[in-house]
Design a protein around this nucleic acid. Structure first.
Lengths: 153, 153
DNA sequence: TATTGTTATACTCTATAACTATA
DNA sequence: TATAGTTATAGAGTATAACAATA
């Protein structure tokens, strides 16, 4: 197999995994009456102590205004609230409400029971995750730096 | 590590992979002035002889009306055209125009040159390829069944 | 009756540009 | 000056429901 052919197959694979993960998350979210993006937000809020809108848009790799829109919609549904940042008066902490927490728990519960990915062995998942990270960060060696930290959570 | 923790890691991985793959494809598409979804459509059109709207929505796991919208936009930009199906007068074949083909070629060319794939050695690329295939096909173990088939293309 | 595709509608996701308030 | 966040706007992606034409 030559290089061009290999690159074409990798594009194929990327689109395939895109569809697959999208479908997986869509189904995960549907059970909770959310979109996959909203579930993503909920999830990240539940994994961080102090999540600002800025940090959220960094994690989601989207524009700040997009984060505002998403938070607006979730707030309108009573799943999150904005509270003032203790030291920086420009910033706001985005918090899950009790309803938001309940929905987050439901997502976990549903995943535990029904996700086809849950049947994948742990080694494969972690290996894939690591490889994708390696590829998108362009650093196959394990040297950690500030940029890496920013890219992670 | 207990079960709940393992499933939470699964969700983490899913969202992380989603973000990475989305980012990769967005960048891939940007160079051609397209969205990642449009690039996906272009790509699949170039890989199939007879692509109907129905088949496209199956591959992309979206509603038929969504496929219509996407085809509309691409047609408006002169990248695809609708031609009548030779035997089924309900169906339409979606074809790449010469401009569409040119853009498709540009995506390949750009990927070959600038994609993070290029920074990986051949061994890593093959490993990534295999893993993506494995995951996108949904089962690390060789047991194939109807549900697996339905989940694929 | 079932399937292919479209239209109308409504919502979510998304970025750009211009803006306010604060650091 | 730089950063956190919002608003206005516009376009893309998405599904649902109702529909026409054809199988």
């Amino acid at each position: 197999m030559d290089d061009t052919q290999l690159n074409e197959e990798l594009i194929d694979s990327l689109f395939a995994i895109r569809t697959r993960v999208h479908g997986e998350l869509k189904e995960l979210a549907r059970e909770a009456g959310l979109t996959d993006t909203q579930t993503d937000v909920l999830w990240r809020l539940s994994r961080a102590e102090e999540m600002t809108a800025r940090r959220l848009s960094d994690l989601l790799q989207c524009d700040a205004s997009t984060a505002t829109s998403m938070i607006d919609r979730l707030e309108k549904r009573g799943l999150v609230r904005r509270v003032p940042h203790p030291t920086d008066r420009r910033a706001k902490i985005i918090q899950l409400t009790p309803e938001g927490c309940a929905l987050r728990d439901r997502v976990i519960e549903h995943t535990t029971r029904h996700s086809p990915f849950a049947r994948l062995d742990r080694e494969s998942r972690l290996r894939l995750h690591a490889l994708l990270r390696e590829v998108s960060e362009g650093a196959p060696t394990p040297g950690r730096n500030d940029h890496d930290k920013a890219q992670q959570q």
